[in-house]
Design a protein around this nucleic acid. Structure first.
Lengths: 222, 222
DNA sequence: AAGCTATTTATACACTTGCACAATAAGGCT
DNA sequence: AGCCTTATTGTGCAAGTGTATAAATAGCTT
């Protein structure tokens, strides 16, 4: 819509700025994620995306071979940010393994990881994993990477308690803990207002400590 | 495509049979779910759906006001079948509460509940829950119903052990157990071949018994 | 057998979609 | 200052979309 303050002569070509390549690609990917989150894959047309990014639709083809590639890159970017945030909570210096585990769980069950928009994106993309092997592989890698992180922390925690679980035990613990985190994440994203702040984290920490057979902390029993 | 054995005269109008209303609606809903599972919401056009159902596109409008209503009914049907199957495992006569819980968990972590197609459908629809309040409410109801079932079984199990949890404790247990089931369900659906048969159920039963603080069964420790 | 009715097909329409490509101008280089 | 590259716009197109509606016919009623 033409700005009333700057009445544009008719047929004037739209002014534009040249952005750096990396910047433009990021903007387009962000606009894609926004569009998908808001209107689903179906509503994310090239024109919608371009409008959101402040460019015209034709430009997209200058940066991406086609729509499919744009979507795949957008999904990869989303997964990258998610796992990055999730793992960031693990780098705590000078904390006991058990404290690190609790911090990890708490971080994963609060904002910004618990987020309806991110969940919507995840679900929309993952729903196509069955049909699109590219998406399926991207998920698999993200999942396994995350689970390996979990498994490493679990090994540390149990090691600090003088317990020596075998490989299979360790794997089962990691799978179960991962499931607890995933499940609570889904519930929190879908119905966050049903839980008081921090409640999901409390539930998660307790469930995971129970899974690992850790004695309750002093004063932690209600 | 015309059958070679019955060469059709040109411009012959397609033959058809009148099915009962209920039957047709079901066929259309099934065709919708198939289309969505295979090509996603975007690829599920009225013509695709009609083709799958063996009718022409125009007929859909005779049974549904528009595409959106068809999708909503399809989602409702999907949720209905899922929760119905899930709860069915609970009706075991003459079993101890603990056995019933274990059977419930096992049933929910094996086929046909663990199913890539159903998961794909669930994810695709739930991804739109953020934007579509109708879908969000449908999910909420299904989720709460399921969680209440879980809570009831938990109360029975703990009651049989002479334990009297308060309401909040009970709620937390139900949320945690629900998360374990959801999380393992997701993992199983997305990467079923990474787990040996029955492995997810084993992990789930152990994790849930740990959550409830139940002593391991005799001979159950590895 | 004839007629009725509502299920079903078929066609039309306005609109959107992804993609192709020519035209243009922004901004660095000399 | 002028030029050259290429990022960006704008237009066009064929295919597909949901919806509206007219035409046909399957199967029941009488």
């Amino acid at each position: 819509m033409p700005d009333a303050a700057h009445p544009a002569p008719m047929n004037e070509r739209r002014k534009f700025r040249r952005e750096g390549e990396e910047r433009r690609r990021q903007d387009l990917i962000d606009a894609t994620l926004d569009s998908v989150a808001e209107h689903g894959l179906e509503g994310a047309s090239l024109r919608t995306i371009a409008l959101r990014a402040g460019v015209t639709a034709g430009l997209i083809r200058h940066y991406f071979p086609g729509k499919e590639e744009l979507l795949q890159e957008a999904y990869a970017a989303l997964m990258g940010r998610m796992t990055e945030q999730a793992k960031a909570a693990l780098v705590m210096e000078g904390a006991s393994p058990r404290q690190r585990l609790a911090a990890f769980v708490t971080a994963n069950l609060n904002a910004p990881i618990i987020d309806a928009r991110v969940f919507s994106l995840w679900a929309t993309f993952i729903g196509r994993a069955g049909a699109d092997p590219t998406l399926a592989r991207a998920h698999r890698e993200g999942y396994l990477g995350f689970r390996n992180e979990v498994e490493a922390v679990v090994a540390e925690v149990l090691g600090a308690e003088q317990r020596r679980p075998d490989a299979n035990e360790l794997r089962h613990h990691a799978i179960a803990i991962n499931a607890i985190l995933d499940g609570l994440w889904v519930e929190g994203c879908l119905a966050g207002e049903m839980f008081s702040p921090g409640e999901l984290a409390t539930i998660g920490v307790k469930a995971i400590e129970a899974e690992l057979g850790l004695a309750p902390e002093k004063g932690e029993d209600k």
